[in-house]
Write a protein that binds this DNA or RNA. Structure first.
Lengths: 148, 148
DNA sequence: CACAACTAAATTGCGTACAATTTACTTTGA
DNA sequence: TCAAAGTAAATTGTACGCAATTTAGTTGTG
């Protein structure tokens, strides 16, 4: 009898024995958790990430921004255009090297900072993890990021 | 002096003090890590997830599939149509309730199972985490999934 | 039976992600 | 010096992910 039934699915191919699916799904879940908080300020999660980088860095090339966020120009270029159209960022041409775009926040983008300060904490609470667990989760995700 | 400079960015608004960004980025990274392995079999990561569910369940309504994967019909309907077009799944109408679609694998979808058995392990190795760390990461992501 | 309330899936529209290519500019080396 | 190689960003095309709506079928209540 060589029938294949679900009992014969190798352990490692079961959805609930893999790390990757919960990681993927938890990330979706967290972005969902941010959504209502951010859409109150007309921001997507990615737009919020870009603003966070710009609040720390003032001015940045698209490539450097991509290095920080682990994203390429195919994702960032159209995003930054939309953000420019909303008045959230500036996209200045580099004066020395005219290929580069120098991205920076506007007054409006800067102004959002105070309004969103408490969102991370509120979302973190919703996650239902202890501080200790959050910090372990963060460390493990960062380890994944450095290795792959 | 009420100028706002980067020194005054509250701790919780810094990219590297939040869990959410590494989680989001690690999930992207893991999907990227799967991509070359799966595209060798002409599968996307989500198609692979769907197949894993179907290998365990034989036949499933779209809603039940969505509950397993934490996704809605807006994502699944077009995905399942593409998978049907590729010959990976069947989309049978329910005979009792004609609203539902009963999703199941085809022979072809079944056949892929053996071919992808070793992918999770290979990707897990690439992540550079110990078994212990993988299991902690998995547990914490699952805790996030139950809570939010 | 009638018909409103409900439900499953599909559709629409928008914003990511990313591979692959293109465009525009810069650097290099014979 | 000037074409070839290199590089930054943008574009193209495809596939998610999801809110909001629509379509089609079912159920509950009088």
């Amino acid at each position: 009898m060589a029938t294949i039934d679900s009992k014969q699915i190798p352990e490692q191919l079961r959805l609930d024995s893999q790390v990757c699916f919960p990681l993927y799904s938890a990330a979706n879940e967290v972005v969902r958790a941010y959504r209502p908080h951010l859409s109150a300020h007309d921001l997507s999660y990615l737009q919020y990430l870009v603003l966070m980088v710009l609040w720390e860095e003032k001015e940045l090339e698209v490539k450097a921004l991509g290095a920080k966020l682990n994203l390429d120009s195919g994702t960032l270029s159209p995003l930054l255009k939309r953000m420019e159209a909303k008045g959230l960022v500036l996209r200045k041409r580099g004066s020395i090297d005219e290929r580069v775009r120098l991205i920076s926040t506007t007054k409006k983008g800067e102004g959002i900072r105070l309004a969103v300060t408490d969102i991370p904490q509120r979302v973190a609470c919703q996650l239902g993890l202890e501080m200790e667990e959050l910090s372990v989760l963060k460390r493990l995700c960062e380890k994944v990021l450095t290795k792959v």
